[in-house]
Amino acid sequence: MASILVLGGTSWLGGAVAARALALGHEVTCLARGESGQAPEGARLVSADRTHPGAYEALPARDSWDLVVDVARQPGQVRSAVAALAERSAHWAFVSSCSVYARHDEPGADESAALLPALDSDEATPEQYGEGKVACEQAVLKGRGGRALVARSGLIVGGGDPSERFGYWPGRFAQARQDGHAVLVPDCPDQRIQWVDVVDLAAWLVSAGLSGTTGVHNAVGPAVTFEHVLDTAARVAGFAGEVARADGDTLARLDVQEFMGPRSLPLWLRDPDWQAFMDRSGASAAAAGLAPRPLEDTVADSLAWEQTLGTARKRSRAGLDRVDELAMIESLAAQGLSIPD
């Protein structure tokens, strides 16, 4: 039995890491404010605010931890954690992001690609997410003398996904199966889509972390086409109806947004500078043991989460409201600008 400290552990990925470690019989402590949810049953929750000095003094006294897993995005929190715990941990795993890269138009780029400049302050705004993660990585690697696992995660998906991006598609196909109408999709069948399932990522962080894996790795699975993702989502949702395809120019005229957010078609990328955002090399992580589950399993978990939230709900984080989508399809059909498939 190993002793594992999860800095977080009450929200999505941190909770999945804690749950995986518990399932393997390890002793798990979660340090978090406790405002994002509950720690998994069996874990010890230590309530502390990492923005406050002395936050780590609330942890139980012990000589060392076998593994510390940190999912933070604020450089100040990461720096203070490393300062307090680096010498008290055998292994360290930090979850970074592929958003640290300076360019997203290089298909298959590996971990040697150029990075954004590191943020020099302790707190990153949402717009400084990538720069903040670069600073976090630097703090971990410097504080641990390079002895750390840095997982640059891609799009994290699956059950519980707070972004609601990946799950939009199986959820929308399931809704369309019930109402009998078409689904609007972007006409970009060959665009590459890449992700990492939260279950797979959590399992790998625990196993690779405890085994002493170090270095920087793109935590992503293989890239596949958008068409393959949509076909799988439709099949898992039991949808066999029509789709209406619209090209990028048409969607832009309709004020449909790319990738995420209100009034968007999730995962769709029109900007040529971002075409490889979900198309990076995952060879290093695969060699270190990151193994993706079948896409069908990931889609099924995503669909179950969407159904829990309610597929007919108003879309604020990602996707189109169904009424708005159907009005677009009707308008496009009247103009002869969409082609049912």
Score class of each variant (00 low, 15 high):
residue 130 G to Y: 02
residue 103 R to D: 07
residue 92 W to G: 03
residue 84 A to D: 14
residue 56 Y to C: 03
residue 112 S to N: 14
residue 102 A to E: 14
residue 106 E to A: 13
residue 110 D to C: 03
residue 73 R to H: 11
residue 136 C to K: 04
residue 120 D to Y: 02
residue 59 L to A: 12
residue 68 V to W: 01
residue 50 R to Q: 02
residue 119 L to Q: 00
residue 130 G to A: 11
residue 65 W to F: 13
residue 79 R to F: 01
residue 108 G to H: 05
residue 117 P to E: 12
residue 59 L to N: 14
residue 118 A to T: 10
residue 81 A to C: 07
residue 72 A to K: 05
residue 89 S to F: 03
residue 82 V to Y: 04
residue 87 E to A: 15
residue 76 G to A: 10
residue 59 L to D: 08
residue 60 P to I: 09
residue 74 Q to L: 08
residue 80 S to P: 00
residue 66 D to S: 04
residue 53 P to M: 01
residue 61 A to C: 03
residue 133 K to N: 12
residue 137 E to W: 05
residue 89 S to R: 04
residue 74 Q to R: 12
residue 80 S to Y: 05
residue 122 D to S: 14
residue 87 E to P: 00
residue 51 T to V: 01
residue 74 Q to Y: 01
residue 65 W to Q: 03
residue 83 A to E: 15
residue 94 F to M: 00
residue 115 L to C: 07
residue 50 R to C: 07
residue 134 V to N: 06
residue 106 E to S: 11
residue 118 A to E: 09
residue 74 Q to W: 00
residue 113 A to G: 10
residue 99 S to T: 11
residue 107 P to S: 11
residue 134 V to Q: 11
residue 74 Q to N: 04
residue 113 A to Q: 15
residue 70 D to S: 08
residue 130 G to D: 01
residue 105 D to N: 14
residue 111 E to D: 06
residue 138 Q to A: 15
residue 134 V to L: 09
residue 97 S to I: 08
residue 138 Q to L: 14
residue 137 E to G: 02
residue 107 P to L: 04
residue 73 R to S: 15
residue 110 D to P: 05
residue 70 D to M: 02
residue 85 L to F: 00
residue 56 Y to T: 02
residue 132 G to P: 08
residue 75 P to T: 04
residue 50 R to N: 03
residue 129 Y to E: 07
residue 70 D to P: 07
residue 68 V to K: 05
residue 62 R to V: 13
residue 133 K to P: 00
residue 56 Y to H: 12
residue 129 Y to N: 12
residue 95 V to G: 10
residue 103 R to L: 04
residue 95 V to A: 08
residue 95 V to I: 09
residue 136 C to W: 02
residue 62 R to A: 13
residue 136 C to I: 09
residue 56 Y to K: 05
residue 89 S to D: 01
residue 63 D to V: 13
